[in-house]
Structures are given as structure tokens and as C-alpha cells.
Write a protein that binds this DNA or RNA. Sequence first.
DNA 1: AACCAGGTGAGGA
DNA 2: TCCTCACATGGT
Length: 312
Amino acid sequence: MEFTLNLADNPFDLYATLDSGQVFRWELRNGWWYGIIDREVVRLRQDGQALTCVSSSDEMNASFLHWYFRLDEDFKAILSVLMKDESISEAVQKYYGLRLIRQPVWECLISFIIATNANIPRIRQMISSICERYGNETEFESLHYKQFPSTAALAKAPIKELEDCGLGYRARFVKNVAESVYEGRMDLSSLSILDYSEAREVLLESLRGEKSLLGIGPKVADCVLLFSCGKDGAFPIDVWIAKAIATYYPRLLDDSVVKKLESNVPGKKVALSLRDYDSIGSAMRKYFGDHAGLAQQYLFHFARSTSLGREL
DNA sequence: AACCAGGTGAGGA
DNA sequence: TCCTCACATGGT
């Protein structure tokens, strides 16, 4: 299947979108972005207003791609609400057309468990390793690609093997969550139906009683809710966003929270309580509105690309 | 060679 | 409920 979408005046930046740290498996080769969405291999390229898609499956059609990249929304209207000050406006202008993606929830959940306390190149490496070892193969244009591993494959994987994929101490979290999903104790398909706080409860609380080693905290939960469950108000707070907020938006936060963020000097780490974390999320939703999550994604990408990390 | 990375859970005040 | 610390490992 091959087709070309005309983006017309619908702002879209394929590169920024796939390079913004929401997805970890897309690769740029010879001018094409190669990716695997569920079972299907796809290659994409953007030439101005034209977005060309080639894949082996008829399911990878224009309407799916619209859904996946959220091209059917009134993006300009959403952005105009977000651009309330100089800081966010600069970030939006720099990566204009960066979109949130609707990615498969299982892959997203495992990916962001793996992402804890690691940098993006290493996250990509770890995910690539588990796909290589546990993923089913798909052929495309006479090359072989690996799908993201099934719940069964990761649930049954020995912890030692997962550690060998470079996961380190994350191995037991991945196996534990995989078992929970595989055995039906955690229902990922319910998340997009529930509202934000209900869905968050499912991720954070559903297994607390029986097992304490889960690996899903508020940040991982927010990533899943934002990047694959359509909870547009979710506002994941990682070290980069914490720096960005301390720099650009201290006026929106309680003094005590600002002090904690500012005390994040070399050698120390952000130690936000759940209460503080949630208060920041609420403040940002109040300020940016229902699409605060998109603002978060621009600020994240912007913070990482500037010298924010070194200067603070 | 240290320090850091899309954080979280355990344990103790 | 909050704070501190360990955690595996590779990037910078």
C-alpha cells in the first residue's frame, strides 16, 4: 500500500514528531522514517505538504495515519490556546507541527517503564534489544523487522534474559507488569474509555495490594495516558520538564514546590512527593487548559534541545 | 573519570 | 505522609 496525503494547511512536522521522545523505535534511513506500528512495517517521508506512506498492509491507510498522528484535529485552534506567553510560544514556533501520537498502549507502557532513569539513546537501545530477542518477525520489502514483544513473551521471559538486554534493575518491573497484563489483572484496553483520574488509578493502584514491585509511578502513568490513551491534560513531569518549569513558570507554583525544584543542584535529584507532583500537573492544566499535555511535549523537546540542562 | 539520564520502591522519621 | 537512598548501565 502506498499513498500520499496532502497536509494542506494542517501543520505537521514528521521529523520533530518522531524525534520528540514519545516513541523510540522509528529510524531515519535514506530519507525515509521506518517504523513498526503493531504488526505492520511502515516507511514515511514528508516533502513540504506531502506525507508519503508505504507499507505492506492495506490497514495502514490514510484514515489510520490521520488517527495515529492526530491529523484530524483542529491543531491551529489548540495551539492558539496554548501560546499564552513568550516561553511556550518560542517552543511551539521552533517545533511547529510537532504532534502527539496515538501509540499502542502496551508498547507505550513497557517503553516508559524502561525509560526510567535512562537517557533517550539508551532507552532506544534497550527497547531494540527486547524486540530483537522477543518480537515476532515481519517481512517488508525483502527485509526482516521485529514487532514489539507480546505480553505473553515478556511475561514468560526469565529475568536474567531481560537483564541481558541491558535493562538492569528494570527487568523485574517489566516482567512483573507483563505478567499482570498477560494474566488479565491489569486491563489496558479500559484506559481510553475511563476519564483521566480513573485511568490513572488503574495504572497506579490496581495491583498495589498484592504486589509491590510494579515500576509504574505518576510520571510513567502520565506518559501512557498522554501518548496512547488520549488524556490530553496529562502532564508528565521528568527531570527536563522540572527544569523548564522552574525556569519559565515559577509564578504558577507554590513557593515550597519552586524551592524543591531549584534545590535540584548537581549531586541531588528531584524528590517531588506525589502531592507536589500532582499540584504541578493541576497548575499546568489550569494555566494551559485541556491540552496541557501538548504544551508539555513542546517544553520537553525545547528544554532538551537548548542549553537548559547545562546551565541550571 | 565523574556525573547524568523522560523515576520508582523500600525503609525509616 | 514525606524524605533519602539504592538501583544497573551506558551516554556525555
